[in-house]
C-alpha cells in the first residue's frame, strides 16, 4: 500500500502485478503468488499476477518491457491496458535442500572468493572496506535492516569468519520485502518522482562458463547491452549505482564490470562507491544490509532513489542516472537497468 500511496494510485489503476520471489523451496510454499493474490489487488476482481525471474532485476524487466512496448506504439496487451505494473519481492523462510546426486560433502562454504580476488589484484582487506562503506551508507536508509552507528573498519576486521575469507560483517542479512511501481505517461500525474527506464538487460551463461570468475562474460555483455540501450557512457552520465552483492567480496567484481563497460583497462578497486566517490553505491539500500533472497528490490530501491527528491530518501544529491545491477547464482545470472530522473526525449 505504501507503493500505491507513493505513486498516488489505487488498486483500480493497476493493470498487472508482477511478483519477484525466491525459488519456491526457499518460500516453503509452492507458487506462493496463488495465496498472495488475496493481498495483491483484492477487491478489484480477477487480476493479472505473474511471477517473473527469480532475480528482482528480471522481475522488474517484465513490466519494463511493457512500458517500452507501449512507447514503441504497440499495446502490450489485447486488453489495451496501460502498462503500469507493480513488482514486489518477498521472502518468508529458508529451506535446506541439498542437490541430489552431486558431491554429497557434508560441508557448507563459499569457495569462489579467493578465486575472485586474486585475478583482480584486490588487497586482502577489500571486503572490509566495502562492508564499512555500505554500513555507513545504510545509516541514511530508514528501511535498512541493519543500522550500525558505531561501525568501524576495526570492528569489521575483528568480526568472526564463518567461512574464511568471509567475515560475518561482510555477509548479507535476510530482509522482508520491497515494492515499487512502474508506470508510463498514461499514469496521470506519473511524472511525480518517476524513474524513467532507459534500458533493461538480462544474461545467463552456462553454469561452467569458461570465463574468469572475477570478470564474468555474462556481466560484461549485460552491461554492454543495457548501456547501449540507454545510450549512455557509464562514467560520464551515471551518478549512482545500486549493486547486488551477496557478500562484500563480489563488490570489486561489480566495479570491474562497470570499469570495463567504461572502456578502462580494468583498474584495481578504488574508493569510488562511497557517497563522496565517483560512483556512489547503495545510497538507500544494500544487499548486505537487507537482503530479500532473490535480490528483489535492488532495482526497485534504485528506482526509488532516482525518483526521490532531495532529502526525501536521503540521497546526498539529486540523482539523474542510475545503474542497477542484480545477479543470481554463483555470479551467474545478471540483470541490469539504467533509469533516469528525467524523461527521455
Amino acid at each position: 500500500m505504501r507503493a500505491l500511496e507513493d505513486a498516488g494510485m489505487t488498486w483500480g489503476d493497476i493493470d498487472a502485478v508482477v511478483l519477484g520471489k525466491a525459488p519456491d523451496l526457499f518460500e516453503g510454499v509452492m507458487k506462493p503468488e496463488l495465496y498472495l493474490t488475496d493481498a495483491l489487488g483484492g477487491g478489484t476482481g480477477p487480476a493479472r499476477v505473474h511471477t517473473a525471474g527469480s532475480v528482482g532485476g528480471s522481475t522488474t524487466s517484465s513490466p519494463a518491457s511493457c512500458r517500452r512496448a507501449s512507447t514503441s506504439g504497440s499495446s502490450p496487451s489485447p486488453s489495451r491496458s496501460s502498462p503500469r505494473a507493480r513488482p514486489c519481492g518477498r521472502c518468508r523462510c529458508r529451506c535446506r535442500s541439498p542437490p541430489p546426486l552431486v558431491a554429497k560433502v557434508r560441508a557448507v562454504s563459499s569457495p569462489p572468493h579467493p578465486g575472485v580476488h586474486a585475478p583482480l589484484g584486490a588487497p586482502p582487506h577489500i571486503s572490509c572496506l566495502v562492508a564499512l562503506k555500505d554500513r555507513q551508507n545504510a545509516l541514511k536508509n530508514p528501511y535498512a535492516h541493519l543500522h550500525e552507528h558505531d561501525v568501524t573498519f576495526e570492528k569489521i576486521e575483528e568480526s568472526m569468519m564463518p567461512g574464511d575469507p568471509i567475515r560475518y560483517s561482510e555477509t548479507p542479512v535476510v530482509g522482508r520485502r520491497a515494492t515499487g511501481h512502474l508506470r508510463n505517461e498514461a499514469g496521470g500525474d506519473a511524472n511525480r518522482n518517476a524513474a524513467w527506464i532507459l534500458g533493461t538487460a538480462m544474461r545467463e551463461p552456462t553454469r561452467c562458463s569458461p570465463a574468469v570468475t572475477s570478470e564474468p562474460l555474462a556481466g560484461q555483455q549485460c552491461a554492454d547491452d543495457v548501456f547501449a540501450q540507454a545510450g549512455t557512457r557509464p562514467a560520464a552520465e551515471i551518478d549512482v549505482a545500486e549493486i547486488t552483492c551477496r557478500s562484500r567480496g563480489t563488490s570489486p567484481m561489480a566495479r570491474r564490470t562497470w570499469a570495463r563497460a567504461e572502456g578502462e583497462a580494468g583498474s584495481s578497486p578504488r574508493r569510488v562507491t562511497a557517497m563522496d566517490g565517483d560512483l556512489p553505491g547503495q545510497p538507500v539500500r544494500r544487499r548486505a544490509l537487507h537482503q530479500p533472497i532473490s535480490a528483489s528490490g535492488t532495482a526497485l530501491r534504485g528506482v526509488g532513489d532516482t525518483g526521490a527528491g532531495p532529502g526525501r530518501r536521503a540521497p546526498d544529491r539529486r540523482r539523474t542516472r542510475l545503474w542497477i545491477r542484480a545477479y543470481g547464482g554463483g555470479s551467474q545470472f545478471f540483470a541490469m537497468w539504467v533509469v533516469s530522473a528525467t524523461k527521455p526525449a
Binding site: 560441508a107 557448507v108 567461512g163 574464511d164
Partner: peptide, 23 residues
C-alpha cells in the same frame, strides 16, 4: 582452484572445525 576455511558448524555437518572445503 579456490577454497574456503569453515569456522562455524552448519546444520547437519559432522566435520571438526575448522575444515577446508574447496573446488
Amino acid at each position: 582452484t579456490t577454497f574456503c576455511v569453515v569456522n562455524v558448524p552448519f546444520h547437519g555437518q559432522q566435520m571438526e572445525i575448522p575444515y577446508v572445503s574447496a573446488n
